[in-house]
Write a protein that binds this DNA or RNA. Structure first.
Lengths: 234, 234
DNA sequence: TAGTGGTCTAGACCACAAA
DNA sequence: TTGTGGTCTAGACCACTAG
């Protein structure tokens, strides 16, 4: 296999190696040449080859082990990146004009399942915020958020009245860790009413519990209007 | 700000810089010191600092531009990696024993919306495979797959009878690109019957269209049993 | 134990975009 | 124009692990 062009930049090498994999030249489980051999082949240093292979490894195409060499991943479990954006930005990115309407806010005793999910004692008092997000004036999502006062210190009524809470949180109590679950639910009557859709419509519910270091920030339930979809890709 | 410990490996620098960001020392929009300044501070070369900062940039915490310097990302839109695994592996990873039951398979004229989604002429003949996946013997997911014969050449009845199609595809026609959509639907009666659940139950439908280079591989609709959730995290 | 990838250095040149 | 990050080199030592 002689090469007429000798790409010596790491992106070209990456492309080249990936092509060998995707064309089936190098099959899952196959051991590929050592860094030093590829370096000789491409006419560059080991560092440059290493950069390319490392990138393919983190992308899941290769598995690398010291002494074991570099092997084409047996089952390239691909990851589809799911955005966790600011809610209004998500609406903007669809080309629609975002709107925000506060439904309810204030301190409230946490229901047992909320407190439990956050790892807090039952009956603790949290901030409870419910708000409606609009796209071009039409109901789009309903946010149901429980926030831990101790962690979001400084957050007050003046914040959530005018602008979405997540925008304040982003700047003042950014999450370091989160757990996300996506499920389908039959739209409860009260939410369906806000969406102006029939009750029991199948709709998406995204639940997100977030932490700052090891302290719980809060629990967000994001109800989507029936028919709304999450989109991603590889 | 003197440092008593001077971490000189790139992971430590990464941790250190990330901490400055997450503790609010460096706020969104702030310009952070140049590579060469950080290198002096940490007592290492520019390459090592660069490695750490590059990593934080690809993770979305920093934005870097030549001449513009390195800036803390204004809105760190985090990405939650959603696995796109082999179906039986996904079941295994929950600790359950996977099962596979073929429901129906063979050539079939593609419905207009399927052909359109794949960018093919209406009325084209595709492979249509429907199968039930079980977890510990219980119905878990239903796969409804349309495959483009020209792209998955070599796939035949003997393959899909005994083992899931995706496992053959992984080795013989791996995807290079995919579009994924997640939505909530009311379970149609025929599917509900297989799941042994009431019709109209809200359940998740994941639709995936995949390509190999620019050639369409097929369209997969994965129906989840009512109550099933997708899980991810940051 | 020996071989592979992982990391770091000290330097250089280049590409891009801000001033 | 000029300063910043992006990349590459040639070399070195180290950490892990397969044989």
């Amino acid at each position: 296999m002689s090469k007429d062009t000798l790409p010596s930049d790491w992106k070209a090498i990456r492309r080249d190696v990936l092509e060998q994999i995707q064309c089936g030249q190098w099959k899952p489980g196959d051991k590929i040449p050592r860094e030093i051999e590829l370096a000789a082949e491409y006419g560059c240093t080991r560092s440059t080859v290493g950069r390319a292979l490392r990138d393919l490894a983190t992308a899941g195409f290769l598995e690398r082990r010291r002494k074991g060499g570099t092997v084409v991943a047996a089952n390239p479990t691909r990851k589809a990146p799911l955005d966790v954006p600011i809610l209004r930005d998500a609406i903007r990115s669809t080309g629609a004009e975002p709107g925000y309407r506060l439904l309810q806010a204030g301190p409230e005793r946490a229901p047992p399942e909320i407190a439990a999910a956050l790892g807090l004692a039952a009956g603790i008092e949290l901030f409870h915020v419910r708000a409606l997000y609009l796209a071009n004036g039409l109901p789009h999502q309903i946010e149901d958020r429980w926030l831990v006062p101790a962690t979001v210190r400084g957050l007050g009524p003046d914040h959530w009245c005018t602008q979405p809470v997540d925008e304040w949180l982003l700047r003042n109590a950014p999450l370091t860790r989160a757990r996300i679950e996506i499920e389908a639910i039959a739209l409860p009557a009260d939410l369906a009413h806000h969406f102006d859709q029939p009750a029991q419509s199948a709709s998406l519910l995204v639940t997100r519990i977030s932490w700052r270091q090891s302290k719980p920030i809060g629990l967000l339930r994001l109800y989507h209007a029936a028919g709304e979809r999450l989109k991603t890709g590889i």
